[in-house]
Amino acid sequence: MKKIVASVSLALVLSACGGGGSTTSGGSGLLPGDDGPNSVQPTPTPEPTGFSALIEWDRPTRREGEDEGSLLLDEIGGYEIVYRDITENIEHIEIVDNQSIIDRSEFELTALKPGRYEFRIAVFDKFGMYSDYSETAYADIGM
């Protein structure tokens, strides 16, 4: 029986999503400090609605077991990303089986709450055979 080698390694790129940027007001013709009846008030910057983490991995290229062999790109069925906020202890699973994402070897998790997260990933082939999970990667998000 062949087994997929879990040579999947993770890299995390963290960023805030939501509003952001600076506020500006157009030319109102008012002098500085003039709060006339038609003055333009700056629009407040919205609070971020969540954070995102870009998960990147190295595509595995071989199987292990009795009949070791290569693992071709078109044999990969997808990836299973398991992540959880350690403080809430709720595990989430994302199945990535879109071929364009498989080719790119990255996936963005969005709407994450601030916290300390752990991430693991496994690859599966088109026949449903899974690798072991990668080593756990940790990240502080929004903290």
Rank of each mutant, 00 (worst) to 15 (best):
I95P: 05
T43K: 08
E91A: 04
S9D: 12
G50Y: 13
T43D: 12
V123I: 14
F51E: 11
R62G: 11
G115E: 13
Y138I: 03
W57K: 00
E56T: 12
K3R: 13
I86S: 04
K3L: 15
H92E: 14
T136Y: 01
E47D: 03
V40S: 08
S22P: 01
G20L: 04
L71G: 13
P46K: 04
R59I: 15
G19W: 00
M129Y: 02
P46F: 04
Q99S: 08
L71H: 14
E94H: 03
I102N: 11
S25C: 08
E94I: 08
I55Y: 09
T136N: 05
S22K: 05
T110D: 08
G27Y: 10
S134V: 13
F107Y: 14
Q99G: 05
R116H: 14
A111L: 15
G33I: 14
V123F: 11
Y79T: 10
I102R: 07
A122L: 08
I141K: 03
D35W: 11
L112Y: 00
L73A: 10
G36S: 15
P42H: 12
I81Y: 10
A11S: 14
H92C: 04
V82C: 01
L30K: 06
F119L: 06
F119W: 00
E56I: 09
E56D: 07
P44S: 01
I81K: 11
F119N: 02
M1G: 06
L109P: 06
I121T: 02
L31G: 10
I101V: 14
T23C: 04
S28T: 10
D58S: 08
D97K: 07
Q41E: 08
T61W: 12
V82D: 12
C17P: 01
F119H: 03
I121Y: 02
V40R: 05
P37Y: 04
V123L: 13
A11W: 01
E47I: 07
V13K: 05
P48C: 08
L12Q: 08
T45M: 04
T136M: 09
G50F: 08
L14K: 00
D132W: 06
I81E: 10
G26N: 10
P46I: 00
E108I: 11
I76V: 09
E64G: 10
L14C: 13
C17R: 00
G21I: 09
D34C: 09
Y133L: 15
E56V: 10
Q99A: 06
P44L: 05
P46R: 05
H92T: 12
V96K: 03
I93E: 04
I90M: 13
R84A: 13
C17A: 04
D74C: 01
I95S: 03
P48E: 02
G128N: 00
